[in-house]
């Protein structure tokens, strides 16, 4: 039996390890690629100094750095929205992708991407993508929430989410049939999930939306903890269910929408990360879980993105492929060695 002080210091050490790992992985990720750049050069470039080879500057500042920053924020958002949904639905195996929320977002992004050109827009703004993605995420989320109120079974809810996803994917499929070849390629690549080609505008947008929402999620720790006891207990302890429900739906939809809009649907980060953090941190207390999940989500996505770039270099794999390959076995493993404790 661990005392609470001991447990707490272990958790803080874990958070620090995660933070340092993110920095190391990010630096490594920036340094490797078609051209390898030394860490000292990277630090110089970021701090604004001159380096010997003047092609390094643009590579780092325009390509690799925005990408790394995007993976960090993207991973954090995905993991936090996964955690929120798991608590909200009191179901250990939900996440945006499984519930079809990502698919809803994809559908609307598809509408914007493929339809946008058809309707004569020459460029698609980040805002346009986000609004589309958000509308789709919200629509599916609300549908699933309504369904969840009617059915109590965990499995049924999953199936409803999956079906919602199928429907969205089917409609997306119809859209792609009408799209011309060029748009199609970029849309297909996007739909497999990737952080490549992030522009600074997109990164800015990601942080402007993501940071406040993640902070808001952290502020919700206390009601989220109460929700672990179930709706009835939560109400009896003074939680106003209506407001809470609305806020959680909004947060989860916005987080999913932001990522999906720019990086495409990315599976399993939202599912695997909260589980891993719960077990390694040994707690369900969201005041500790949320920071843990933010960092671990960022780290996992960072590592996956690195793998996506490096494994088959110079060919880059879609990120969604890697997260699925790493995430799915982890989830199966967790479910199999299920101590009673890793439910939520």
């Amino acid at each position: 039996m661990e005392t609470s002080q001991k447990r707490k210091s272990r958790q803080i050490i874990l958070l620090i390890i995660l933070f340092i790992s993110i920095i190391l992985v990010s630096l490594y990720s920036i340094s490797v690629g078609s051209i390898n750049i030394s860490i000292s050069d990277i630090l110089k470039i970021i701090s604004g100094q001159e380096v010997a080879n003047n092609t390094y500057g643009p590579i780092i500042l325009n390509i690799r750095l925005p990408r790394v920053l995007a993976t960090i924020m993207g991973g954090a958002c995905l993991a936090v929205s996964g955690l929120l949904l798991q608590i909200f639905f009191r179901n250990p195996i939900v996440e945006p992708y499984i519930l079809g929320i990502s698919s809803g977002a994809s559908l609307f992004v598809g509408l914007v991407l493929l339809g946008g050109y058809t309707f004569g827009f020459s460029t698609i703004t980040p805002m346009g993508l986000f609004v589309g993605s958000f509308a789709g995420a919200m629509a599916v989320m609300i549908a699933v929430v309504i369904a969840a109120k009617k059915v109590k079974s965990i499995t049924t809810l999953l199936i409803i989410g999956m079906m919602a996803g199928f429907i969205c994917n089917a409609i997306t499929g119809i859209l792609t049939a009408f799209a011309d070849k060029e748009q199609l390629h970029s849309f297909v690549m996007w739909s497999m999930g990737s952080f490549s080609g992030f522009s600074w505008t997109q990164v800015q947008f990601l942080y402007i939306v993501g940071v406040p929402i993640i902070i808001l999620a952290y502020v919700l720790s206390k009601p989220l903890n109460a929700m672990l006891f179930g709706e009835n207990y939560a109400i009896s302890m003074g939680l106003s269910m209506k407001t809470f429900r609305m806020v959680v739906i909004l947060i989860a939809s916005i987080l999913t929408a932001t990522i999906t809009a720019f990086a495409g649907p990315i599976s399993f980060v939202g599912l695997a990360v909260p589980h891993i953090v719960r077990i390694t941190f040994g707690t369900s207390d969201n005041r500790i879980l949320i920071p843990g999940v933010i960092l671990a989500g960022a780290l996992m996505t960072g590592v996956c993105d690195l793998c996506a770039r490096m494994l088959m270099a110079p060919i880059e794999l879609p990120l969604g492929v890697i997260t699925a390959l790493i995430g799915a076995p982890i989830v199966v493993y967790l479910l199999l060695r299920k101590t009673k404790g890793n439910e939520l």
Binding site: R90, P92, L228, F229, G230, N232, Y233, S236, M237, R278, I279, G282, T283, S284, D285, T339, K340, G341, N342, E343, L344
Partner: peptide
């Protein structure tokens, strides 16, 4: 007022 219910709670790691 406080309540104690029959429903199972999954508070595993608290």
């Amino acid at each position: 007022m406080a309540i104690v219910l029959t429903e199972q709670v999954s508070l595993g790691l608290l």
